[in-house]
Design a protein around this nucleic acid. Sequence first.
RNA 1: GCCGAAGUGGCGGAAUUGGUAGACGCGCUAGAUUCAGGGUCUAGUGGGGUCACACCUGUAGGGGUUCGAGUCCCCUCUUCGGCACCA
Length: 865
Amino acid sequence: MDERYRHKEIEEKWQKIWEEQNLFKVTEDPKKEKYYLLEMFPYPSGKIHMGHVRNYSIGDVLARYKKMKGFNVLHPMGWDAFGMPAENAAIDHGVHPAKWTYENIDYMRNQLKRMGFSYDWDREFATSDVSYYKWEQLFFVRMYEKGLAYKKRSFVNWCEICKTVLANEQVMSDGTCWRGHADDPGVIQKELDQWFFKITAYAEELLEWCDKLPGWPERVLTMQRNWIGKSIGAEIHFPLENSKDIIKVFTTRQDTVFGATFMSLAPEHPLALSLSKGTGQEQVVREFVEKMRRQDKAKRTAETAEKEGVFTGGSCLNPMTQARMPIFVANFVLMEYGTGAVMAVPTHDQRDFEFAKKFGLPLIMVVQPEDRVLDARTTTEAYEEEGILVNSGQFNGMDSVKAREKIAQYLDEKGLGGDRISYRLRDWGISRQRYWGAPIPIIYCDRCGTIPVPEKDLPVVLPSNVEITGTGESPLKGVKEFVETRCPKCGGPGRRETDTMDTFVESSWYFDRFASPDYDKGPLDKKRVDYWMPVDQYIGGIEHAILHLLYSRFFTRILREMGWVSVDEPFTNLLTQGMVCKEVYECPKDGYLFPDEAEGQGETIRCRKCGEQISIGRLEKMSKSKKNVVDPEYLVENYGADTARMFCLFASPPEKDLDWSDQGVEGSARFLNRVWRLFYEQHGHLQNVKPLPFGTILDGGRKSLRQKVHKTIKKVTEDIERFHFNTAISAVMELVNEIYVSEIKDNDDDGSRRVMREAVETVVILLSPFAPHFAEELWEALGDRESVIKTRWPDYDPEAVLEDEILIVVQVNGRLRDRITIPASYGEEEVKMWALKSERIRKLVEGKEIKRVILVPKKLVNIVC
RNA sequence: GCCGAAGUGGCGGAAUUGGUAGACGCGCUAGAUUCAGGGUCUAGUGGGGUCACACCUGUAGGGGUUCGAGUCCCCUCUUCGGCACCA
């Protein structure tokens, strides 16, 4: 054994051995309990970052631990390889997206291997492999046949920087692109023909299952519930004046229908323009609609935005009162929600109230609170609470909750509408005007229309001879050999669809493919998928709380319907890890600085460029633009992968953000070195020594050390099970500290050596999921031939952890006054007696009447007087 | 505005169910090491107070429940995240 801990040599040595022995390869084994552990696979952007290191270190602890616990562990890794950065690289550097992507993959695979993660590399694939995306094209074709994939001309979110369409989920609440560009001008609305997946068909099921995922963080479920946004209400039909047509509205407050005095339409509503024809309002409406279309939607629909609108010239009738209701176009009405038309009840909706005041429209109070009387003539705001119905015909006097039910029933009976449920969730737009993605397998024929590519003709291979320009048109449009084809139905000339699929489609089923990545007779080998799915533990960043996780849940249902998977939900347990943060250096003149662009210390840190005093300290997520990243490669080089892993796990619990600290990394390195020195000093005299069997009776230093060992086994096991890796590591640190100061450390007798052997052996085993190379090397130094990961995770000896003397805290009136050590065997009365016998307690209690004595077994006595 | 999470030493963080607040690590202090420095080992380290005890005080702030509250309840403040004219 080397006197010094040489991380580089050790890590290379063991990575080679693991690979040679194919140690992490798994196959289905019905005799063993399976455990599918998955971390979100990376986009091959070039290099791994600290977020990956943290995510995958957490996963690797669990994978290795479960393996040692005897589970058949599936722990795969692959690449989310389609996407825009590859095209940007093509535009910026003239390198083909495929070359760029696969070179990045090679580099990053190597980096992951250097971290020592226990992946079954035989299962690796990239989503840009034809052997992967061809199955996605098969899904598309089948979905098209079932009406789950359809094409629609509509207004879609368009990012000017990405030059492509975004799904609703990909637009942030401030109206910017989810990718986070600098100086994002905001997503605009563009009218395009787009393919959609019918996720709304599963809105109810996706929502219901939010209550059946106890292994998911509540906040993720809450976000998904909000996103689906279920509202229970009614549809009401309003007949147009002078026409047989009707306007349908959705409302959750059908109890206020008698108070509806006007109508508001979304600017995109087809009736908006047609109603105005010949009324003299045509020009005004046209201008308003045009203006709205050009406006950033997030701005237009922000709550603070001024309520704007114009009269269409048309009117409809309130079906309950027959009152005439003028029809307006209003900026706050959304075409995508409900029916794009809103019955306006200014007395009971604040938006309508403000709108009515602006245009001098009538107010009719129809719901009265029970404790006061509201007057429509004097009220200054809408009353939106429940109450008793007035001015509402046969529903007068009814409670508003009850009235909602009765009015919906009435509408249904009269053919004027009825109960409806509306969702905020909209269908998933998947068309992207991009090259580097899976082609949508559709052919357009002038005679036969839209024809899916027959299954026997799949895959539609992405051509490689393409010019990437970044104009906003799909680059595939320029590839003649790709576009021009034959119609599969009539054999005449046909044109291929040139848009590609959203890359979130690939990540919606990759976890299924990992179960049978080599299968070529279909997308999934049912038997193997049934063995492995669902994923027992999924780990990744909270930023995917809606996007990826909701799409994956939807896709699982599609694959279930098609018979490829048997599960309802893909991920049983979800762990969302926090971000990796570091302080930023910001100069008032030169912006963000790298740490070495600053000089000085403490209060007087200055910019090297301009000499200006700079601010420091604010913690932000590591990002290139903020110049606060730490390159994992630097860490591995200087400290080793094991230290990097230890730090990520020790510094903070997984769900919380991790604050980067160079000194913290030093601390982790120091700990490993401390363990190394202990072994260097001890391994010689502990080789081929066997630990004592369970139940052995000991005393003195042997007993106390052995007790600490078994307590540590118990603690670390429990902590790993509940993902408290930081406290698991601190428990091992405590054990190491205790070994250092143990009085039996250098004893030569058989008993001491056997206790010591067990102690150091336990340190290695407990540390092995965290610092695997380090543990292997020490394990070998102790004389063991087999890899430490093949060792069974130890059980603790229940007898060894028992204490014969325990510390009892003695309180007087709830305040700590003394601590006494007594034999653990003492009964209640004896404990109380000894507590009262304590000198300090006697002084405090003297002359007072003892009213009560409370005893918490093995913990405390509280004397009340 | 609504919903959710959080607030503990100089710092990162401990404290499964109400029962010794501050484990472990960083930093700092002292001592040791034939000791330049660094490294290593040992000990100390919430604040006040004391030679040392005793004692007082302390988990964002205020109130409450309890023999006992970081933990439970109510109110307030701050931070972060989500949703936000969704009819």
